[in-house]
Amino acid sequence: MIANLQLSDSINPADAVIFEVETFVKSNKPANGEYRHMILDAPSHVLNCQPGQFFHLLCPTSERHQPFLRRPMSIYGFFPEKNELHFLYKIAGKGTAALSELGTGDHLNVVGPLGHGYSIRDDWRNLLLVARGVGLATMAPLAQEAQRLGRKLTAICSARSENVLMSVDHFRALGADVITVTDEQGTSSVENMRRIIEEHVAAGKVDTMYTCGSNRLLRLLQEIGAAHGIPGEIALEQQMACGIGMCHCCVRPFRRDGAIVHERVCREGPVFDMQEAMGW
């Protein structure tokens, strides 16, 4: 496997933008009941990432789990200076179960960085981020970039209960104003979220909106965006095979210029224009 690492390095040319490399697990621990936080030791040249991009992971096979295709995973953090690549994931099936069995020092082959991430236009000073559950993971690097660019960030995080609210402290540490809503407290209803967002819009605190994952949130933000002319972006998921744009299995429909177009989540996405996105 070490030989494989050297091989990859010699075959990846200087002008490659997508890399296949062996990484090593630094830690892989539960973040809370449902989610796990994995930190990989990755060469810094593969960590030239944009917020919203993802990696395609070759999950290990064991007696119990034999995943075949790679699994896409959003970048939860990337730190070239420390050679660190972070993921936050939930065990959904055999691939993620196999990932959860990796221990410190084990290797993991990753391909990336992949896809088209979030944009932060110069005139977007006040950013609103709305996410549910692990969806927030895709948005942590966005919060970090917003901080770097000196933008004001408000994050509304929705989850089942307070104890599965992810990354709230992380977002607060990045200077975000974090509002949490939960099913348990009955605060995560669409009506309540609409009220909170409309208040922020009225106060001039929303130049753009970002979200991911939830159909309900997409509808809500599309309505608010259309009513007030506020642009937005959404990160979407789809089953993938190649992850780099070759197979066309990951397409989703989008509304554009009165027609329906199909775009690849792995290539044109995973981040798309919010108004063009279609519910599912």
Partner: peptide, 22 residues
């Protein structure tokens, strides 16, 4: 256009696709 999604699934050690020919 191509076929409906999901266009791919895995079976043990291999995959099935129904991309069609978009």
């Amino acid at each position: 256009g191509g076929n409906p999604t999901p266009r791919v699934c895995e079976v043990r050690g291999s995959m099935l696709n129904s991309i069609g020919i978009p």
